[in-house]
Structure formats: C-alpha cells, structure tokens
Design a protein around this nucleic acid. Sequence first.
DNA 1: CACTTTACGTA
DNA 2: CGTACGTAAAGTGG
Length: 885
Amino acid sequence: MTDSGKPTLLVVDGHSLAYRAFFALPVDNFSTKDGQHTNGIYGFLSMFVNLIKAEKPTHLAVAFDTSRHSFRTDEYPEYKATRSASPVEFTGQIPLLQECLAAMNVTVLTKEGVEADDILATLATEGAAAGFDVLVCSGDRDTIQLVTDDVTLLYPSVQGVSQLKRYTPDAVVEKYGMPPANYPDIAALVGETSDNLPGVPKVGEKTAVKWLTQWGSLDALLENADKVTGVVGGNLREHLDDVRRNRALNALLRDVELPVGPEDLAVRAIDAQAVREIFARLEFRTLLPRVFDAVGVEEGDAEGSDATVVAAPVAAQLDGVGAAAWIASHADELGVTVTLDNGRPIRVGVATVDPTEDQPAVIEVTWSDDVADVLRPWLESDAPKVLVDAKPQVKALRRAGVSLGGLTFDPVLAGWLSRPSFPDKTLGDLVERHLDEKLPEADPSQLVPETEGATPGQLAWYALRVTDAIRQEMPASVGRVFTEIELPTLGALADMELAGVAISHEKLSAFSAELSARADDIAQRAYAEIDREVNLGSPKQLQDVLFEQLQLPKTRKTKTGYSTDAAVLADLQASNPHPFLDLLLQHREATKLRQIIDSLDVSIGPDGRTHTTYLQTGSQTGRLSSTDPNLQNIPIRNEESHRIRAAFEVGEGYETLLTADYSQIEMRIMAHLSGDEGLIEAFNSGEDLHRFVGSRVFGVEPADVSPAMRTKVKAMSYGLVYGLSAFGLSKQLRIEQSEAKQLMTEYFARFGAVRDYLRSSVEQARIDGYTETIFGRRRPFPDLASPNRVLRENAERAALNAPIQGSAADIMKLGLLHIHEQLRADGLRSRVLLQIHDELVVEVAAGEWDAVERIVRARMGDAADLSVPLDVQIGRGANWDVAGH
DNA sequence: CACTTTACGTA
DNA sequence: CGTACGTAAAGTGG
C-alpha cells in the first residue's frame, strides 16, 4: 500500500529489462558450470527484488513478448526489421527466468501477437480505473505515454538496470517539455531508429516539441504541414505518411484481452523450496537471501511452499506377538521401516494404507532378540514389503541374523531410476515432490524439538503412499529394470558391503612411510631449483613460481588463473624444459598415492577388512559409485600402484581371489546397437579388436598393424563412445587436426553403421526427450532442445554415451546378481566382494575354485544376448595385484 | 566452518 | 572441443 492507502499494482516488462541486464552484466561472471548463461536472469531478478523491497506492491505481474511477430509487424513488416535477432545466449535465458518467477509465484503474462508493453498498457489502464496506484517498469520509451497522476513509469537509466528513474507527469514535462500524452507525437516525428521507424529528417525532440506546442496537436500540425517553414518543413511534408505510421505503431494497446485483471494479481507467498531449487540450478547464492528478505521469508524457513503437513496416523505400540498378529491379518503390501543405531536395528514400524476398521493403520515394536524370532518368518518370507532406502536396513537385519525377503519397492531407488537427475535422496524429498506434503521433521538444532519427527511406523506409512505415486508414473519398461535389475542388485550390494575386502595394514603403512620420505626429498630438490619454499600442492602458489618467477609461457586458462595440471606441465616440459617441472610432477604423484594409501589404511575395520558403501543411486547412467572409501578408483597404471593393489588380499578362511572382467564391453555394445557388420566381425574373428580395426582403417594385414596405428584406432574407438571430436582426438594423440579428421573419415568409411547409429540415437533422444539402454533404463535429456549451444552439445555427447555406458552397467549388474544368486543356490561359501564397473572381485573358499570360475564365466557371459559374444577374462591370485591382469 | 576450485585416481 | 564418478587440499567468504 502507498501513503495514499490505495493498493499498488506493479507491472514489469520482463523482456526489455532482462535484455538490458544481458548487455550490462559480463557473461563470464554469470554462467553456470555447465555453460548456461545467467546474466540476464540475474540482472533482472536483482532489479526485481530491489523494486519489490522498495515499492512493496500489493499486486504484481511480469509480461513477456512471445516472439518478434506482432500486430505491428503485420501492419508494417519493416517494424524492428533492422534489429538483429536476439542472441540465443539471451533467448535461452527467458524460459529459465520465467521458471524463477513461477517459483516466486509471480504471475507471468504473454500474449501472441502483442508486445509486453501492450500488456503493461492494458493493466495500467485497467488498474488506474480500478483505483490502484500503478507502477510500470519497462525499458521501452514508448511506455512514457502511460504516465498519469495514477501511473508512474520506472525506467532504467543508462548507468544500469539497478538505477530506475521515476517518471511522473511532472518529470516527463521537465524532460520532454510536454505532458506524457504527447510523447507518442514527439516520437512519431523524431522516429525510432531501434524499431526501424524513420522519422522526419533533421527533426529532433526540440523541433518536435516546438511544432506541437505551436499547433496544439499532431493532427493540427499535419493538417498545416504546408505552413511549416524551412528545410525541415519540406522534410515534414515529404514524410507525412511516415509520421502517421509511426504514430499508429507507437500507440500502445490498452484493451488487450487478458485472462486476468489487476485485482487478480495480488502478491502471493513464494514457494521457498522451488526458489531454492531453481537458484541452486542457476548457481545463484547471494540472490537467495535477498529474495527472501524482500518478500519476508526467513532464511532456513521451509515455509512458503504449498506443501502442508498432513497428520499421519498415530502408531499403536505393540509387543512382538501383537505385531506378528497384526501382520498376519494384513496380506497386502506393507510399508516397513527399521530404525538403526550404529547399524543395528532399534525399532520396527509397519504400516498399511488399507486399514480394517478395528485395526490400527500403523504399528511399532521395539527390536529385541525375541521380537526378531517372532517376526523372522514374516521378515524372511515373500510377503510384499516397501522400504525406503532399504540397503542399510537390509544390512542391519542381516547383522541381526535376519535375511529380509519380499522387498517389492524402494521409493528412493525407484525415484532415482525414474529421474536420475533429481536430487531426491530422502523420503522427505519424495513426499514433497510426489504428494505435495511435508514430512514431519524434528528440528535437529533443538535439544527439545518443538516439532516431533515422524515415527518409524509413520515413515512406513508415507513410504507406501509415495510408492503409489511413483509406480503410477513409471513406464512398464522402467518398471522391469527396477524389479529385475535394481531390486535384486540392492540385496547383492548389501552382502558385498557386509563382507568387505581384506586389506593389509602392514603393506600400506610401510608404503606410506616410503612415499612420504620420497615426497619430502623431491620437495627439497624442487625448492632448491627455485631458491624458495612454496606449497607444491597449491595451484595458486605454483602459478606464481611458473609464470612469474620462471617466466614460463602461460597455459590453459582456468577460472582463477592458469592451469598447472599434469598435461599442461608435460607440455611445458617439452617446450621449456626445467628441472622444477619434472620434480613437481613426481611430487604430485607421490603425494597422490600416499593420500590414497592413507585413506585406505584408516578405512580398515577391526575385522581387518574395508567395507565400502556402494551408491546405487549415485550416477546418471545406471552405474554404481563407491564411497567411504571409493574402491572404484584404486590406481593401476604405474609401477607403485601394483603395491597398493597387492595390499588387497584374500581374507582369513578363504583360499584365493578371483577377478573377472568384461573385455571391451562398451565396444561390444556399440557393435550390437549399431549392427555394424565390420565391428561384429571383429569380435567374432577372435582377432585383437584394435589390430582388426587398424587393419581395416589403414588397409594393411592385421599382422602389419604397427603399434602407432593400433594406438590411433584404439583412441578413436574409445573416443567414439564419448562423442569425441576431431579436435579432441588430435589433442589426445598429439597429431594435427587434419590427420585426426582423416583418421575419422577412414574409420567411418569402414565402420559407417557406427556413425549412423550414433547420429540416429541422439536424434531419437531429441524426439523422445530421453535415451534408453538395451534393457529399457531411461535417462532424460531436456537440454537436447536447449538454444544454448554449449548446453545442447554437452547434452548430445552425454546422450550419445548414456545408452552405451548404461547398457554396460545393466549387463554388469545382471552378471553380478546372477553370480551372487547361484553361489548361494549352489551352497558355496565363495562371495563377490567388489564391483569396479566392468570387473568383479570374488573371494573364493578352499576347494571351490573350479565351480566358482565356471559360474562366474557363465553368468557374466550370458548376462545379455548380444550379436557379439561377451568375453570374460578371469584371473587368480592371493591378492588383487596378482589376480588382476 | 562451509563451500568452491583445482587436480587426479578409476572405468 | 571426451562420458561417468569420489576425494583431498587449498582457497574463499562469512
């Protein structure tokens, strides 16, 4: 409300203001890490929140142009024709800006055939008539005509979008010498270059005002044009039509038909969560508190979203026998939550969404050995159960001697499978997204929380309800991946994590000490080379040494300076040899290895084994990831790394380790998906893949493929899977771009179906909006339609890779769980310990080698039926180094 | 103290 | 201007 007590309507031209911000703010400072430009969005929102904070409007709307086409271009095709097309870097920001506004619950208006300013004019006119104080914010001068006692124009000054000049009728008179209503007359005479509306030559504001004052109105002036003297008078007579046209076009429409009127635009509470999400996506950090401040939301306050807390049923507290009886009378799918303490079960909650009249919907029971015995038959049975983030609970039950059966759904796992890019990691996230409700949460910062968190039974109740929502939106093919791959994999992973892998602390600590000494020695020698001590681990300090002190040529730019990574240092060493460079590389290597060793060392548990955690929902493609520690990036390439792998040993009570890996699985999938006859023949011929491909590409006998030729086609083959360009290939092989291009041409001349497949698969993804693996796992790619080239091309490469990497992940998961199942079915003690994307490590019990080797080879080999065989390489040894190959 | 940036390990 | 990950240290900003 203003001082006058009238409500305030603020209407904003989103397009013109964002466009000004786009040119005002340096794009370098306003881009996300994957290349989305955000300067226009940021600048607009920054101005917008200042405006809201300062003006406190009671009613609010933002209008956008729909396209360049409008009634004005219909009447005068040259309208704005000289204006160069908005750069896609700008137009690509508009939908995101509109998303931000939607999250802020601000009404966004567009209408085909009219410009944003016509919408503003209509709302301003209606608003003034309805008794509002109206504020119009636009970067288009034509809106000056809207100014009245009730309508004030806020116009960005040349200094930038954050400075807004207030145009009241008095201010307009002061600036233009005439009241606002006459402004279009002035503009019609002067013309508007940016709109391609030529005016009367040699006539500027001064002359226009003089004439209009003299004759009283534009019509009067035009009627008496023959009485105007001088050269400009002649010009006026020659351009009468132009002036009439200009006047017709610069009049803003005040009667556009809109779906809302001013009174419908009352300011609404923002959706704080949605704002957080979109701002996180756009990597806006400082803006968030400013938005919350402007609209009066307290930071950290989860309110503002529409999500409400719906009261969950209160759980009946039962003993083991009571719980078993309740369960026995419910044959439907039940929600189950096991709460844990230090990996041990504490309480169990069970819920149904279909309660009978005389029974509670939710029950809870405290865990004990007796309860375990009473509930075991049900827990281990196939009776259908839904658990949220089941793996830790499955592990805890197994520690307590219970092997959970009947797991039919895990909403977290299914939510990830449906939308791997969503960050929904908890039940609370899923409840908000799918039920639009809020999970009751205790405030962890309070010793005595004001709000109670959901109890185990209530969590189970929410889990069931979320399950329903997620199932409904899961296509059948994805549902099959879920039940046939992901759910069983969850159980196998639980067993692998529980088993852990034996690691020798003695071997590691000895090596760590050795590497520390080596690193210190190298550091001293490095300091001697530059006559001072710097932190060799600090890129910032290294830049000072390399580019200031040693005056080496500047390298690849990074955000904060110049790169000092290994590839760059190697290049420098080749062009400007200096002993410091080599010592630096050696130091990096030694310290990196020591880091890895030390982190492994501390991860060894009291059982002498390291238990990693596999994140089943950690990737976009379907792969697993491994954390705490990450056992999927243990070094293998250099000499020292063998000593690390040698510390991974067969454990007590077992005989040997077995490693099994798929050879060239991604190229085999490529052969299968593309149907390329040459590539299929390569895999069926038994010849070394790269030798075979090399012989085709270079037109020589396989025996005559030189190591250099093999290296080239190998890089090319692998690069294909990642969407490699000629530029990237030339860089990797350190060859001329022309030679790389030539290599690609030759390659595709022999293996053309591969190129056809890659092209068509991205095209299909553009049409579908997602990619699909052989087994039906999907990954959405909205950015394939992005106008932002960087974003779109990144998406294209990822989309090209996703079906290949994803199919490989599917195959490995199937291989893993078939092995896991059969080892148990055959009563063997041997067990799978690790999965490293295309490799498994198995701990083999005494006397079981032959059986295990046969099972592993068969189950990995027949995990998928491709048009080429799946080749499995097996190794054996007392430690990972010896067993690996 | 929490977060970002750089660098680097794996498939 | 090559996909997918996780970790650690230094640097940054509150």
